[in-house]
């Protein structure tokens, strides 16, 4: 079993030299092993940039990322086994569903059987030999979720993975995500601009300001699991946060409707 991952982020500043934009400033937070943390902030708050830094793709920043007390900069290969889910499913259209999952597994003899097993967990066993283009948007996300969990990650990074899904599909994906998370218990950093989603999924929610991204509020969600985005406890907490901290959500409140969908974003588009 892979070791557990504790994450300590301390970014003093992150600048995009080409545009001169300061994306992040004085951003520090820690995520305990097996914990589920959601980052909530308006578009352009640098949420994806944080994930890029954690995954090791972006090395041009000031500050440090510690993984189990060791700086990421001291490692040539990444110390964590990372599962990643993007805003779009990003499956390879020329590979079948099962090949897409196999792609990220290491060259062991049981790759195929392990891929099929995780596909079964997201209830798509019957579509293993289909190509992504033959699946609905919701199904493609389920395969992307399976791909992220297939490597048995100890660190899971999710970049608005359920954006622009219709409500039933999003609920189903939440259920599958939490089911897989409980089984494997990776440390999770989940980026979203949907407050209700964050409250449903996370142990802790970190609120970011508009650019340059700074932490403006932290919240521990102590509602018992299993939770449901439509449950009244979530709705009450959602209301309470919005009324107690109207200022910290200014970035969100202006461009989000009641359900946390940005206006102009087509719901149920896929």
């Amino acid at each position: 079993m892979a070791q557990v991952i504790e994450l300590a982020i301390n970014i003093t500043s992150k600048l995009f030299p080409s545009s001169g934009i300061v994306a992040l400033q004085d951003l520090a937070f820690t995520v305990s092993p097996g914990e589920f943390v959601a980052l909530v902030g308006p578009s352009g708050a640098g949420k994806s940039t944080i994930l890029n830094i954690i995954v090791g793709l972006d090395r041009h920043y000031e500050g440090d990322v510690l993984i189990n007390d060791q700086s990421l900069k001291d490692h040539s290969t990444h110390p964590a086994k990372i599962g990643y889910m993007f805003q779009e499913p990003r499956l390879m259209p020329w590979l079948t569903v099962v090949q897409n999952v196999e792609l990220v597994l290491d060259g062991e003899h049981d790759r195929r059987s392990r891929a099929l097993k995780i596909i079964e967990e997201v209830e798509l066993a019957g579509r293993a030999e289909s190509y992504p283009g033959q699946l609905s948007g919701g199904m493609q996300r389920r395969i992307a979720l399976a791909r992220a969990f297939a490597i048995r990650p100890n660190l899971l990074l999710m970049d608005e993975p359920f954006v622009s899904l219709d409500e039933p599909t999003a609920l189903r994906l939440h259920g599958q995500l939490l089911h897989l998370w409980r089984k494997l218990r990776p440390t999770v950093v989940f980026v979203t601009h949907n407050l209700r989603e964050a409250l449903t999924l996370a142990d802790h929610v970190i609120f970011l300001s508009a650019s340059p991204g700074k932490i403006i509020h932290r919240l521990t969600v102590d509602i018992k699991r299993p939770r449901n985005m439509q449950a009244s406890a979530i709705g009450d907490l959602h209301k309470r946060v919005l009324s107690e901290h109207p200022e910290i959500l200014s970035g969100l409140a202006t461009d989000l409707d009641e359900q946390g969908h940005a206006p102009g974003q087509k719901r149920g588009m896929e």
């Binding site: 990643y84 993007f86 990003r90 390879m92 990220v104 990074l157």
Partner: peptide, 24 residues
Amino acid sequence: RKLLEVADAFHLSWHRRLIRVYLP
């Protein structure tokens, strides 16, 4: 680029990245 990012995020070996993600 987005598909190459998948290969990078999952830290695929360079030859798998080339044969399964880039060349297709």
